[in-house]
Design a protein around this nucleic acid. Structure first.
Lengths: 351, 351
DNA sequence: CTGGCTATCTGTAACGTTTCAGTATATGGA
DNA sequence: TCCATATACTGAAACGTTACAGATAGCCAG
């Protein structure tokens, strides 16, 4: 009579998704035993374990994520928090690919948590922590004193940052040595006889702004070149803004004969501005730029480039978060990538 | 004695996440009532409803996704399925932004489900359907006879495609009118006196390959120009491949004096190849290219461009899937975006 | 005053998982 | 023989939610 009683001898076999209960019925064991057998718990007999795992594989059992999550709180999700309007284009896809690459071999899923202009960068972080929507978080646009990192550290949410912080707190990070990049760029320009250099820098506020600015300044004094200030604009500005500011700058009497640029898209605008002012790349001025895809040499072969690999960064960040979740020491999950040498255009092999 | 009995009068108030049970206790109601009051069910008194919603807002109640998902099967997740290596860079970030933009105002999360070179494109789809990991799916790289679309239709998984299918099955899609794009491009080239045109097309196999090829051919016969075949390569090839093939082509006696290109990144390589062969853009040859970001004019101002807005595409696709989930007719969720006119470079306002 | 509405509200079960606290059987030491 | 202990397994509870099947009370027609 009791409609609700769940009879153990269900006759329907072609039920939907396999569950532990089904597996238990099929093997004649209890669901507890099955659950444990699947995760190689020590108190399960060797034969039983093998038997359960065999059947599970046969019928294609996959744990129900909602069940696991509800019970354990584990989400098997890593969240990549991105600024919707500011992040540079290729940056996003490359980093996503890197992260995906690593997560693909794990039970983890990647979820993208966006935030935009108007929003407080803390908002998505708070959401993730409060709702427990992820087991780990990856953030970019890291600041020296980053409230997001502090908050996640305080709340025990595992995370890794793209870029370092400077708060005396230890956490996983992946960073490109922008100090070395800027130094190398300045040295290269100096070696070409350029003496009045300008820097198209990352936006002030982000940690790597200071790294870049310092590297630039350090190398300037080393090589005895001078700086033409160009800090009314950063790589965060629009193409149009960078272009017009550059053109203005290049029409002055005292103008740079060399540029260091921290991003490829910004470099496009920079060069456009230079040319708007009637100057010629490689003759009147040289430019060293970072890039992530190998495109700048197609744009103007006179450009000098240094490659930064965002895909690898994404992969490393993912590995770091997983490592941290797995109990690794955060201090061992920090990586600073040395900048490669400045590369000039080399014509492709003849066809 | 019974340790397990859950006393109703819990004294701890500063418990972790607010739950329905807590809300029920605070309001003095049953959890069923609270659950219903929060979703504006009709059988709840107006005052009770307001009271519950007030308290819920005050203590920041947010439904536990795992609970909802376990009980209802609804995941509140939309999955964007991406090919890890083939998708064009800017495409990915733009489309993600578009999707995010729309989902941000809903309870839905975006999860990115990647697949790569080696994999069967069906694999991630099967995974999503079998594990019920998403309430809706967005796919790109759509084919005329697309097994993914067929499979999802058969299994009742709501989805939208970027690009159309040709299977006689009705489903939401968003597509750019590549036939019109190709026609417009050819007409423009013809109006400039170009008579021997070549097409750098989308990869064969994808639906919009045929659209583009047909538009190209239709306009050719309309304007009486001829085609120089260039189908050993597509926009899916690497920069290097496109570049060398283009250079080879341009060194032949009979070479194109006009190109139509379906993607901005490919156009960079195309132009590089043209110049490798010693020819000059705007003099020896003209190129009309699609682009998503306004960058090609910075690259070479002689380029002619047509913009395709991937961000909008992402937003539309997201809206379509949500609409479909909400019960809208799939036939009403189809959109073909007309191609805008071919644009030549116009110098920025003087400074 | 009964029976049958309607309007509100409630208890319980169930989704699939893990964990706590056992239970049953075998093994071994005294 | 008896107790202790290890091995292999199991039932029940709980995570937070929704839905089914009532329950209670007020009201009105007959």
């Amino acid at each position: 009579m009791d409609r609700h009683r769940t009879e153990k001898n269900e006759t329907k076999s072609a039920q939907g998704r396999p569950t532990l209960k089904m597996l238990a019925f099929m093997t004649g064991l209890g669901v507890t035993t099955v659950s444990r057998a699947l995760k190689d718990a020590p108190e399960i007999g060797a034969e039983t374990r093998r038997r359960v795992q065999l059947v599970a594989k046969q019928i294609g059992y996959r744990p129900n994520r909602a069940g696991v999550r509800l019970r354990t709180g584990r989400t098997n999700v890593i969240s990549l928090v991105l600024n919707t309007d500011r992040e540079i284009m290729s940056f996003v896809s490359d980093i996503i690919y890197g992260v995906s690459e690593v997560l693909a071999e794990t039970p983890y899923h990647l979820i993208v948590t966006p935030y935009s202009r108007s929003q407080d960068p803390m908002e998505p972080i708070r959401y993730l922590v409060e709702t427990g929507s992820a087991d780990g978080v990856i953030i970019s646009r890291t600041q020296p004193n980053d409230p997001r990192a502090r908050y996640m550290l305080e709340h025990g949410m595992p995370f890794a940052t793209h870029g370092r912080t400077e708060m005396g707190l230890v956490h996983p990070y992946h960073d490109f040595d922008n100090h070395a990049f800027a130094m190398g760029a300045v040295r290269r320009l100096a070696s070409m006889g350029r003496r009045r250099l300008a820097l198209l820098s990352p936006p002030p506020g982000l940690t790597y702004h200071a790294h870049t600015v310092n590297g630039f300044a350090d190398a300037l004094s080393e090589v005895g070149a001078s700086e033409i200030p160009f800090n009314t604009v950063s790589i965060d500005n629009t193409i149009e803004q960078i272009r017009t500011r550059t053109a203005q700058l290049m029409r002055r009497d005292i103008r740079p004969d060399g540029f260091v640029s921290s991003a490829a898209a910004a470099t496009l605008a920079l060069v456009a501005g230079i040319e708007d002012a009637g100057l010629v790349l490689g003759r009147d001025v040289d430019v060293v730029s970072k890039q992530s895809a190998d495109l700048l040499h197609l744009f103007r072969r006179e450009l000098l480039v240094v490659n930064e690999n965002f895909r690898m960064a994404g992969a490393e960040l993912a590995r770091s978060v997983l490592g941290l979740i797995g109990g690794a020491e955060p201090g061992t999950l920090q990586r600073l990538v040395v900048a490669s040498d400045v590369q000039a255009f080399s014509p492709p092999a003849a066809v």
